[in-house]
Design a protein around this nucleic acid. Structure first.
Lengths: 106, 106
DNA sequence: TTCGGTATCTTGTAATGCAAGATATGTTGA
DNA sequence: TCAACATATCTTGCATTACAAGATACCGAA
């Protein structure tokens, strides 16, 4: 993952972090991101990302019955996903530092 | 500018911040970004951005002779650009806080 | 006069976030 | 019973983006 991916891929990292914390399903992820202050990540953003991440073997999923509604697809991190989370954190911290260097000057 | 633009448009904000600090030309901007820790923003990224920002009247430019080489196009912020810089700073701070909320949990 | 460094710009590509909407399941109440 | 609603996932198509690669041009010095 290059710097490009970093700039564009901030949500990926957030998803990894939330999944790491606790097994969650897609719909729940959208709600959590909103709780954390993001302005509305539609499912049109999240589901394709989860599918991609599963194809890349960063997450795995299992279907479970819901109390109300169709089956939920719960996601957990694979070892590869955990590694990617660590790499994301490192890149995110570098990005923060770089951008803040640009801004501090004024 | 939406959240999408925010995620993708971090470099825009950095350019605005650097130009605000001091009149600069494109080639110089690429060097500064590298100084600040960014991993190599090629001119293929920066020049199209500057052209777009000028079209949107966030920056204005004047040509000046160089000590060595072709004329340099020096950029300064317009009032609109200054306003956008302030908006970028606000969005950047919100983004930092949101992402760090996701990460802090683990 | 040619070579290397400086400087800007263009073209084409892959990836991204998302709006919009399709699809499916379960609960509830009229 | 069955219509309405909330839950839940997935797909399609679009505009934007960062960037690699390379074209163009100018200048000074060897």
């Amino acid at each position: 993952m290059s710097t490009t991916q970093m700039l564009k891929g901030i949500i990926d990292g957030c998803l990894l972090a939330i999944i790491y914390e606790k097994e969650v399903y897609g719909y729940e992820l959208a709600e959590k991101l909103e709780q954390y202050g993001f302005d509305s990540f539609s499912e049109g953003t999240i589901y394709p990302l989860l599918i991609r991440m599963q194809k890349e073997e960063s997450v795995s999923s299992t279907l479970k019955k819901s109390t109300a509604g169709p089956k939920r697809k719960y996601y957990t991190l694979t070892p590869k996903g955990e590694e990617e989370l660590q790499q994301f954190i490192a890149r995110w911290e570098k990005l923060q530092s770089n951008v803040n260097l640009c801004l501090r000057k004024q």
